[in-house]
C-alpha cells in the first residue's frame, strides 16, 4: 500500500488528532537540580526534539550591567548583558533544535525588572547574530520574516531585516559538520 498520497492530508489533520497534555512548572533554566527533578518526574530522558523559547530570550540575561553609567541602587536604568555562548550551549543541551521567537524593542519595556528583561534592541540582536554567524558549530536558519540560513555571507541581510520587523523567529542547531 502506498501511503504518500495520504501523507499531506494526514500531516495537516494530525494537529487536531494528536492528544496533548500540558503541565506548568516554575523553574529557572539554569537551575540544573530543579530542572532534572522535573525531567525525572515527567520521565524525560535525553534531549527534546525542540526547545521553543517564546518571547523569553531577553530574560536570559546575565546579572551584570553593560551600560556605561554609575548604577543606581534600584537599577532602573541598568541593562544586563547576554552571554550568548553560555545561553545557547545550555539550550542546545536540552534540545536538538532551539527555536527562538523574539520581539524587538519598541517604546517601553513592561517586563523589565532591574537590569533583567527588557526586550533586546536591534543593536543587541545584531550582536547575537554576529556571534552565531561567526561560530561554525551552529547551524542557524531564519524563519520569520523570511527564510534563509545565517552565516558570514548572509549576515549583511540581518541589519536591514531588523529595521523592518518587530518580531522575528529563527532556530539554532548544532552543526553536524563541525564538532
Amino acid at each position: 500500500m502506498c501511503f504518500s498520497q495520504f501523507e499531506l492530508e494526514l500531516e495537516s489533520r494530525s494537529k487536531f488528532l494528536t492528544d496533548t497534555s500540558i503541565r506548568l512548572y516554575t523553574c529557572s533554566l539554569f537551575d540544573d537540580v530543579a530542572l532534572n527533578r522535573i525531567r525525572e518526574k515527567e520521565g524525560i530522558s535525553g534531549k527534546f526534539n525542540f526547545v521553543l523559547v517564546s518571547k523569553t530570550l531577553h530574560h536570559l540575561r546575565t546579572d551584570e550591567c553593560v551600560e556605561e553609567h554609575e548604577c543606581q541602587e534600584d537599577e532602573e536604568c541598568c541593562k544586563y548583558g547576554l552571554n550568548e555562548e553560555y545561553v545557547f550551549a545550555k539550550l542546545l543541551s536540552l534540545g536538538e533544535r532551539v527555536i527562538i521567537y523574539e520581539p524587538i524593542k519598541t517604546d517601553g519595556d513592561l517586563d523589565k525588572t532591574r537590569g533583567r528583561g527588557g526586550n533586546f534592541t536591534k543593536k543587541e540582536l545584531l550582536q547575537v547574530f554576529k556571534y552565531l554567524s561567526e561560530n561554525e558549530k551552529y547551524k542557524v536558519r531564519f524563519i520569520r520574516p523570511q527564510i534563509f540560513d545565517l552565516d558570514k555571507t548572509t549576515l549583511y541581510r540581518v541589519e536591514s531585516m531588523l529595521r523592518q520587523v518587530d518580531i522575528l523567529c529563527f532556530y539554532v542547531e548544532k552543526n553536524s559538520n563541525k564538532s
Binding site: I22, L24, T26, L52, S54, I99, I143, R144, I147, C169
Partner: peptide
Amino acid sequence: ESLKIWTDAITELSEIEDAFKT
C-alpha cells in the same frame, strides 16, 4: 498570568510552524 503566557505562545505556534519542519 502564567496560563495566559502559555496560551498566547501556543496560539502563536501557527505563525512559526516552519521552524518545526525536520
